[in-house]
Amino acid sequence: MVAFAETDASALRIREIRKSFPAPDDPVTKRLVLDGISFSVAAGELVCLIGPSGCGKSTLLRLIAGLDSTDSGELFIGSQPISEPGAERGLVFQDPNLFPWLTVRRNIEAGLVARRVLREKRNEVNEFMRLVGLEAFGGAYPHHLSGGMAQRVALARALINHPKVLLLDEPLGALDAFTRMRMQDEVLRLWENRRTTMLLVTHDIDEAIYMSDRIMIMTQRPGRIDRIITDALPRPRDRSSSDFLRLRSDILELLHFAGDSATA
């Protein structure tokens, strides 16, 4: 059922992860949120993760980021086991979470300052500001930015550390439809440009089809990987092509099925 290829080229490898949280009504009992998740992501791959709300997608990303620890299972980045947060795994949330007390430029620099390499890598700041089209806004504070701009700053801030894997937790979920489509192209451009391995969580099926090499579909709680859809369309993709629409209706059908099996 869960098909995944284990190759040495995999940038991220996850094996049999379990995670439970104390139940909200009764803190003594534990509630399983992730039930044996296994998959791997090849270097340079863009994989999407979709699933019903509350199935544990954010929890999974936090585990990969090292912000929480698993109950059991193994996580590897390359050949290194994951034990704590590290700059080689970037994370971008739905809320850009820019530091409001820093200007755009200083937000983008934050990773370099945190790793104490600002002096050597200062020239990269301009490069990344240009990359996300914000050269003119270096001195602006986050409260001046629109949602799309803020999210572009968040992307630049994560990318400046040259992460081996970029984890994206519904990064475009809060944007309006037009901005979201523009930002999808923007993220794709960054990905094609830098070939950063990306794991993108989304609740938007079109986004998943439009962007990813592979789509992993999770089931309702406890979260498991139910399906992996590998028949990606050739790039560049057309959101209104018949292939696109066919794949979309296939996935919709699958999701309906996924919903049924969760209640069973």
Binding site: R62, A65, G66, L67, P85, G86, A87, R89, G90, L91, F93, D95, N97, F99, A110, G111, V113, A114, R115, R157, A158, N161
Partner: peptide
């Protein structure tokens, strides 16, 4: 806000930062 601290940690921040 915990999310500021989380972001900083994923950027490679240590305790001083």
């Amino acid at each position: 806000r915990a999310s500021y601290l989380d972001v900083a940690r994923t950027l490679g921040a240590g305790r001083t930062y």
